[in-house]
């Protein structure tokens, strides 16, 4: 796949300082991006009982870019994503969408803003068909009656637009699909809605090599169309092959929000494992 020829946005000179300083930045990134981020979450706290999972976590995502969200197991990546998708309520924190403060108190709020999450477990109903899953919770209807034909047509077009040809029929029950095909359906569902932000939670974790490549290509394709893509991944090769920005979480805190071009592989690994970067020279 060709990821080298993509257009990088204008350089952002201030952006490097965060990681290089080697200090946890917490909720207030010290650099100002040139444009308002599409989605900007700050100061997110979240506890499960006595365990505080997120401490003032922050994440900014920009249109047309892939932002990789990295961190070790238990760093709070999935929790942060679920908070901004309205699936888990956050204890504290602000969400700015296009600079406006918004409230996300349920999956529907997130959907209305155009935030779509492709969950690690895909969150599909095995007993429903591909088309039924893609429109779940947002069924199209004419009067009282479901408009099946319209939904099937749109579902097929969305899959086709992502060059997903392996599903065969949109009437197949999702239970009969293989892992990679389910992933494709989940991604196609996320972009069916004129969504602005698409979050992919460890999309390549359970996939074979060839299909993982396809998914990464799809992520790039979405960003090139002007969507903001958040990619959660453990795989540094994946991160560096598609991400424009990298946000690192360490024990529930955001320790870096940097451009991918400004950090090295080793530095990111350091951020993930220790939450800091040893200053280079």
């Amino acid at each position: 796949m060709n990821l080298t020829g993509r257009a990088r946005p204008v350089a952002d000179p201030a952006g490097r300082l965060v990681a290089r300083s080697g200090l946890p930045t917490g909720a207030s990134p010290r650099w100002e991006p040139p444009v308002t981020p599409l989605l900007d979450v700050r100061g997110v706290d979240k506890s499960f009982g006595p365990v505080q999972v997120l401490h003032e976590a922050a994440l900014s995502v920009h249109p047309g870019e892939v932002t990789a969200l990295v961190g070790d197991n238990g760093a709070g990546k999935s929790t942060l994503i679920k908070c901004l998708g309205g699936i888990l309520p956050m204890d504290a924190g602000d969400v700015l969408f296009e600079g406006r403060p918004v409230r996300v108190s349920g999956p529907r709020d997130a959907a209305e803003l155009g935030i779509e999450i492709v969950h690690q477990d895909f969150a599909l109903c095995d007993n429903l068909s591909v088309a039924e899953n893609m429109f779940l919770g947002r069924e199209r209807r004419r009067g009282l009656v479901l408009d099946e034909a319209d939904m099937e047509r749109r579902a097929a077009q969305a899959l086709a637009a992502l060059s997903i040809r392996t599903v065969g029929s949109v009437r197949r029950p999702v239970g009969s699909l293989a892992g990679g095909q389910r992933q494709s359906v989940a991604i196609a569902r996320a972009m069916l809605w004129g969504s602005r932000v698409v979050v992919l939670d460890e999309p390549t974790a359970s996939l074979g090599l060839a299909h993982a490549q396809q998914v990464l290509e799809a992520a790039r394709k979405l960003a090139d169309r002007g969507l903001a893509v958040v990619l959660i991944s453990h795989n540094m090769n994946d991160v560096f092959s598609v991400a424009d920005r990298i946000t690192a979480l360490f024990l529930g805190r955001t320790v870096a929000q940097v451009r991918a071009s400004e950090v090295t592989h080793t530095q990111v690994v350091e951020l993930i494992t220790s939450g800091r970067v040893t200053p280079t020279l």
Binding site: L124, C125, D126, L136, R141
Partner: peptide
């Protein structure tokens, strides 16, 4: 043929997925 019925099947198939779908 109705949205309600579709949601009944969805909850029966995967309640968590249904919840995340709003």
């Amino acid at each position: 043929r109705t949205v309600y019925g579709r949601h009944v099947y969805a909850v029966g198939g995967n309640a968590e997925a249904a919840r995340r779908a709003g």
